[in-house]
């Protein structure tokens, strides 16, 4: 692709002055990212589709460095849902790693692709605008996030504690599989702060 590069900014990443969570020493993933990675492995997830957000950079890096899961970088979040759904139809176990603004941008894909056909899918969503959010601009999306998940009828869990992370990933993957549904984990500010 002429003029492009893998490190170019991707639509959907959060702008603004908030500091990105620093990677751990010597590039090691932060503990919360390690815990989620552990859960993804226990859940048998083998393909991650992502659009980056500052809060989840450490997890994206952890997935890339680990190398045991295929990592697909999409341009937009509803596209990510489509790619993951297609991979599941092909026999893979897929998760989507996005910001909650992207979750809202994916409502039609979740309702009319994933929901209509009943495709099990794990959604890992940074919960911008939740308790502890310092950026005013994320509040509108934060307010809408849980009501939209409820309106879609999707099971979800707000993850705030590192010690819950691995099991929560496994539990969400289990309910996605048994219910032929998407299931979401909302990764809240407290999780990143406690890392």
């Amino acid at each position: 692709m002429s003029g492009g590069s893998p490190s170019a900014p991707v639509p959907g990443s959060a702008p603004g002055p908030a500091p990105a969570p620093a990677p751990g020493p010597a590039g090691r993933p932060l503990p919360w990212a390690d815990a989620i990675l552990d859960g993804l492995k226990r859940a048998g997830i083998d393909l991650i589709v992502t659009v980056p957000d500052m809060k989840i950079v450490s997890l994206i890096r952890a997935v890339a460095a680990d190398g045991s899961m295929e990592l697909v970088r999409a341009a937009r979040e509803d596209e990510a849902v489509g790619i993951a759904a297609g991979a599941v139809l092909g026999g893979r176990r897929a998760a989507v790693l996005i910001q909650n603004a992207g979750l809202l941008a994916s409502v039609n894909a979740l309702a009319c692709l994933d929901g209509l056909f009943g495709i099990p899918l794990l959604l890992l969503v940074s919960y911008r605008g939740d308790m502890g959010e310092r950026e005013r601009s994320h509040r509108p999306v934060g307010k809408a996030t849980e009501p939209v998940l409820k309106a879609l009828g999707l099971p979800y869990f707000v993850l705030r504690k590192v010690e819950d992370a691995s099991d929560a990933v496994v539990d969400a993957a289990v309910v996605a599989g048994s219910g032929d549904t998407a299931a979401a984990l909302l990764l809240s500010n407290a999780l990143f702060r406690n890392a």
């Binding site: 759904a85 991979a87 092909g90 893979r92 009319c112």
Partner: peptide
């Protein structure tokens, strides 16, 4: 055959996921 019925625009994305999986 897999017929997308409502999610306009996502056929190529679903196709990409399938191609990666198969």
């Amino acid at each position: 055959n897999f017929y997308l019925r409502h999610s306009m625009g996502l056929a190529s994305s679903v196709g990409l996921g399938l191609a990666l999986a198969r």
